[in-house]
Structure formats: structure tokens, C-alpha cells
């Protein structure tokens, strides 16, 4: 399986993502934001970081970069596009996903492990994953998901809230909401579920000695689903 990670000026999780994808068997290529063509890929990843220094709004400038046109075309043809953290912010700024990631409610940068509940397994990302609750890492200043009432209803009616912040037992409540996100939303799909944007970083949880292995479960499962 082939993947490509887009690098923007200010991306800082691009290499971690490259390491994670290769560790579980993807043939990964790095693509510079100023390129116009994507290599032939089964998966495109928009990595975390601070593209363009978070100028104007997080992800807004990256959302207009040269390569993004090809990413949008790829996504609209049904290609898998995964946006992590800043990648999620970029996906909302391009309009591929609804809503926006606002500043965290407590105005603090949050860097810690969290638990997320997998709400929908009927898609390439989570199909047949053997866990309902994953321990992943978040590191963000703008992770507070917000959208209009109509958009929220659309997400709920179509079961598009991919992952929600929860506690270790999988209970989704106010205490398990790190950043004020609407309905504890940590990640969402588009209607066709080929696009996934989420704040938590699976690529940071791929080593049992350094962090944890729930990211490994995510990547292994994704690869299996693409075979």
C-alpha cells in the first residue's frame, strides 16, 4: 500500500507519521506543499504541526496551498485522506470537513494522553479494530471543535463523529473533555467516510516502551483494511 505525507512549512509531525506508516508496511513518500501533483497513493496524510506558523487561523494558509487542489480532487474521487491535528484544521479550512477548530476553552496548550471512543467502525479507518477505546496523545492549542447546529445534526444523524474524548472506561462526559469541544468531538468523517480528521496523534503511540501501542493498532488495522 502506498501513502503520501504532505509537508507544509511548519509541519512538525510529518517525520513521525512517515516512521509510523513505514513501520506498519506502507510505502510512504513525502510531498512538498508547493508541488502540484500527488504520487499514486492509497492514503494521503496531512500531518500535525503549525503550518505557516498558524498565521491568520490554524490551517487557513495551508488550505490554499498549491498541493491542496490535488488533495481535494483525490478526496472527491473517494481517496482516503487522513488529517491529524493541524491536518484536521486544514481539512476544515478547505471545506472538506464541516466546522472549525477553535482555541481550547481554557486558553492553554494541552499536551497529554487522552482516551477516545471509536463511534463508527463501518469505514476503512476503524473497520474490525478490536478496541472500542484507544489511548492516544493530544498536543494542541486549537482543538476545540465547533460547528453550527445544522452541521452537528448532520454529523449525528449520519454517525460521522468518528472519535469522542472519553475516560478509560469509554464514558463520554464533561470531565473527559480536554478542550471544550462540542459533544466531546475528537474527530469526524465526511459523509462518504473516506476523509477522517482528528486531533489525537496515533503516530505518537507506536512504541510500547516510549508511549503506548494504541496507535500501532490503528495503523495495522488501517493497512489491513486497505489490502
Amino acid at each position: 500500500m502506498k501513502s503520501a505525507v504532505i509537508i507544509f512549512p511548519g509541519s512538525n509531525c510529518d517525520r513521525d507519521m512517515d516512521v509510523a506508516l513505514k513501520k506498519f508496511g506502507f510505502k510512504n513518500e513525502m510531498v512538498w506543499h508547493d508541488d502540484e501533483q500527488l504520487p499514486k497513493s492509497d492514503l494521503i496524510v496531512l500531518p500535525g504541526g503549525f503550518s505557516y506558523g498558524d498565521y491568520l487561523r490554524c490551517g487557513s494558509i495551508a488550505g490554499k496551498s498549491k498541493i491542496i487542489k490535488s488533495v481535494i480532487d483525490f478526496a472527491k474521487k473517494g481517496g482516503l485522506v487522513l488529517g491529524i491535528c493541524n491536518g484536521f484544521q486544514i481539512l476544515t479550512e478547505t471545506g472538506l470537513l464541516p466546522g472549525v477548530l477553535q482555541q481550547n476553552k481554557n486558553i492553554e496548550f494541552i499536551c497529554k494522553n487522552v482516551f477516545v471512543k471509536v463511534n463508527n467502525k463501518n469505514n476503512k479507518y476503524f473497520n474490525s479494530i478490536d478496541k472500542d477505546v484507544l489511548e492516544l496523545h493530544i498536543a494542541h492549542n486549537e482543538g476545540n471543535y465547533f460547528c453550527s447546529g445544522d452541521e452537528l445534526k448532520m454529523l449525528e444523524d449520519n454517525n460521522l463523529i468518528a472519535v469522542s474524548y472519553c475516560n478509560e472506561k469509554g464514558e463520554v462526559n464533561e470531565n473527559s473533555n480536554p478542550n471544550g469541544a462540542l459533544q466531546n468531538i475528537a474527530g469526524i468523517f465526511n459523509k462518504e467516510k473516506n476523509i477522517l480528521g482528528m486531533m489525537p496523534h496515533p503516530e505518537r503511540m507506536i512504541d510500547k516502551f516510549l508511549s503506548g501501542e494504541d496507535g500501532s493498532i490503528f495503523f495495522k488495522n488501517l493497512l489491513n483494511n486497505l489490502k
Binding site: 487561523r57 479550512e93 464541516p98 466546522g99 472549525v100
Partner: peptide, 8 residues
């Protein structure tokens, strides 16, 4: 198209 995000 850029300066404002009309969602918010």
C-alpha cells in the same frame, strides 16, 4: 475565501 472563516 480567506480572511474570515464564515463558520464562526
Amino acid at each position: 475565501k480567506l480572511l474570515a472563516n464564515l463558520v464562526i
